[in-house]
Simulated assay, not measured.
Amino acid sequence: MITPAAAPADAAGNWVERHAPAFAQPYLRLARVDRPIGSWLLLIPCWWSVALAARTMLAQGVTPDPLAALAYLVLFALGAVAMRGAGCTWNDILDRDIDGKVERTRSRPLPSGQVSLAAAFAFLVAQALVGLLVLLCLPRFAQVTALSSLGIVAIYPLMKRVIWIPQAVLGLCFSWGALMGFAALMQALPPAALLLYAGAILWVIGYDTIYAHMDRADDEAVGVKSSARLFERQTRPWLVGLYAGAALLIAAAVAAAGGGVYAYAGAALFAGHLAWQIARLDIDNPALCLRLFRSNRDAGLVLFAGFVLQALAG
């Protein structure tokens, strides 16, 4: 057994432990329902995309259907929870042997024996079916766009065995929602969508590098690759480049969508939050890394608020 250096328990004392029925707790933990930050970070680019697509349509002289936009926000929220849970279940199935060697993860349902491998596969299918129901509620172009991501999602958990920056593949997965709002509302992927997607990828690589520093010692011990191990003491300058690139690409997406003072203000506040993370970072403080990682939900929601205000303002 490998004991990490002061790795925080990032899911201790949560509502699942306090209130969920005992029989359901292992499955809720398998889907990371006890750690909703992942669902938020998967969802937020979807919400960005819906709001910025609405702004793009207005700039083109087309009035978006507000009820359709609201419906997509709700559908993407349901889909994010289901597919994040399915992704985490798939990850734990593939990583069950590695997880058993690490103190922070050895109590997960699969390595601890709380859930059998067959039950985990069945639970994976059940979550995927929920995602399928959400998918069927979307326009055909959006369905095809969503399905195009499945190959990347499937291989992501294996990437930490192969490449030194598996966070790049995570970025491709977790940023896919930046395309989905455009695909659903406009049934097209204009330049604003592609720029938003590119910016979101750099954002994901940045925040997941911060998160990966919590497991740096464990990853080295078991031979798992990560950007935290690769960058190590150079993490701060790398984050400057990643986060600056994310902010610039998102600002370019705003310009391509027609601009607007509220959208630019949201982008500026988002960039300011990323700069604050870099200034606070201490890669040897796992608890701080966790807090900075989680704070990206707030950064993303601030940007979303700017996009929504701009869409409402026209």
Rank of each mutant, 00 (worst) to 15 (best):
P191H: 15
Q187K: 05
I152L: 13
P190N: 06
K160E: 04
V102G: 12
L202I: 04
L110F: 12
A198W: 07
A142D: 07
I155A: 02
T105N: 09
W176N: 04
V144E: 05
V115S: 06
H213L: 09
L138N: 03
V162A: 02
L158D: 08
I205S: 02
S112D: 13
M180H: 02
V125K: 10
S175V: 08
C173E: 01
Q187Y: 06
D99G: 07
L185Y: 05
A212Y: 10
I163T: 06
L170G: 00
A212V: 04
A126Q: 01
G177S: 08
L179V: 01
V102A: 05
L136Q: 09
Y207Q: 03
G100M: 04
L147C: 11
R108K: 12
S148V: 03
L195F: 15
A193V: 03
V153C: 10
Y197R: 03
V134F: 12
D95L: 03
R106Q: 03
G206L: 02
P166T: 14
R140F: 07
D97C: 07
A168L: 15
Y156P: 00
G206Y: 10
L135T: 11
A120N: 14
A200E: 14
W164M: 14
A128C: 12
A118C: 12
K160M: 14
I201D: 01
I210R: 00
A154C: 03
V153H: 14
P191M: 05
F182L: 09
F182S: 00
L170V: 02
A128L: 15
F182W: 05
V204M: 09
S175N: 06
Q167W: 11
S107G: 13
L117R: 15
P191Y: 10
Y197H: 15
L136A: 15
V153P: 04
S175P: 05
S175E: 12
T145S: 11
V162F: 15
A146T: 03
P190V: 05
F182D: 00
L138C: 06
V102E: 15
G131V: 06
R161T: 12
V125Y: 06
P157V: 07
V162G: 12
V130H: 11
D208H: 04
V125Q: 06
A178Q: 00
L150M: 14
L133T: 12
S112H: 02
A212T: 02
M186E: 06
I98F: 10
M159H: 04
R161N: 13
L124Q: 07
I152Y: 15
A183Y: 13
D97Q: 13
F174S: 01
M180R: 00
L194V: 09
I155Y: 07
S148Q: 02
F174Q: 01
P190F: 11
A142G: 13
V204H: 06
G181T: 04
Y207G: 01
L117M: 13
S107W: 08
V204W: 00
M186W: 12
C173N: 03
S148H: 02
W176D: 11
L110T: 02
P190W: 13
W176C: 05
G113W: 10
V115L: 09
R106G: 15
A146E: 00
M186Y: 15
V134N: 03
R161P: 10
R108Y: 09
F182R: 01
I98E: 06
R108N: 01
I152V: 14
L129R: 11
G151E: 09
L202A: 10
L150H: 10
L129A: 08
S112R: 07
I201P: 00
L110I: 15
R96T: 15
L195P: 00
M186R: 07
D215L: 09
R106H: 11
V144G: 08
